[in-house]
């Protein structure tokens, strides 16, 4: 494989683009300067660390260490979903609902990919397991976070509509349909857009990376198609679980709307 090596100078020039954005934010008073710089630094440090972890993980080839890395990734994804909510369920559910939906959908789909589709030897080979889980989890996280955030925001906004239906004898899932549909839509739209735009508007990152590192384009395309379907499957399952789980928490067995189970997140936490 003929990879053109990148110098730190190259990375520095690319980072300059983010600094230009930060400068624009400062001049326009958008309040995004700090977030942009922190996100850029955070990404660099996180990727550098995961690079070191992956070098070591690939060398030890241990199912337990692979499981530990996967667990850390799942835990962090759960926290990111929690942190993105403008309104959160109270107690365990604030973290538990998004995290459990993601874990269940991402892990099942990743195991399907490893066990039945890609079939590496051994099946837990971290060279396949970790990147597969990472890509599936990253997209599922976005879908679940958007779905839950829309659900809670829309339920507060459309409280009168939901309660009108409940008062007219509609069961809770019928009454909540007015907020469930937009929540599911917002959760599904990113992956639908990604699939629709792939190859026409945008060349997906993984495929581009494989081609740049010397993989024949037809192999890279097959991997990308597989990944997109896996991501769509996991995202759909995760969003459905999170949104319908949210409906169960935002209502009770007597078909009442329970907004007392929601609280506004502190601005500083988001």
């Amino acid at each position: 494989m003929n990879v053109i090596p990148l110098s730190y100078w190259d990375l520095g020039i690319a980072a300059g683009l983010v600094l230009l954005n930060a400068l624009a934010s400062l001049v326009l008073g958008l309040g995004l300067t700090r977030s942009l710089i922190i996100a850029g630094v955070r990404m660099t440090v996180q990727l550098a660390l995961i690079g070191l972890v992956l070098v070591w993980l690939f060398s030890v080839q241990s199912p337990w260490w692979t499981l530990l890395v996967a667990s850390v990734m799942l835990g962090m994804a759960g926290y990111e979903v929690y942190a993105r909510q403008a309104r959160r369920l109270r107690g365990f559910w604030a973290y538990g609902l998004g995290a459990s939906s993601m874990v269940l959908s991402s892990v099942v789909v990743t195991l399907l990919a490893l066990g039945a589709l890609v079939q590496p030897e051994p099946w837990y080979d971290p060279r396949y397991a970790v990147p597969l889980l990472g890509m599936i989890l990253g997209n599922t996280m976005t879908g679940v976070a958007l779905g839950l955030d829309t659900l809670t925001t829309a339920t507060v906004r459309d409280q009168a509509a939901v309660e009108a239906r409940l008062a007219l004898g509609h069961p809770r899932f019928d009454a909540m349909r007015v907020v469930v549909v937009p929540a599911l839509r917002s959760g599904f739209i990113p992956i639908i857009n990604s699939m629709a735009a792939a190859g026409v508007v945008a060349l997906p990152g993984m495929m581009t990376g494989q081609i740049l590192s010397g993989t024949p384009p037809e192999e890279a395309v097959k991997y990308q198609v597989l990944i997109m379907f896996l991501i769509a499957g996991a995202t759909g399952a995760g969003v459905l679980m999170a949104v319908y789980g949210g409906v169960l928490r935002l209502t009770d067995g007597r078909h009442r709307l329970r907004l007392d189970r929601l609280k506004q997140a502190d601005q500083s936490e988001r």
Binding site: A160, A164, R165, A167, L168, G169
Partner: peptide
């Protein structure tokens, strides 16, 4: 069951909602 109850005991809100 709550839906059956509310068909018989019907609440009309001061600011009715629409869906």
């Amino acid at each position: 069951p709550a839906p059956a109850w509310r068909l018989q005991v019907s609440y009309l809100a001061a600011t009715p909602g629409w869906w």
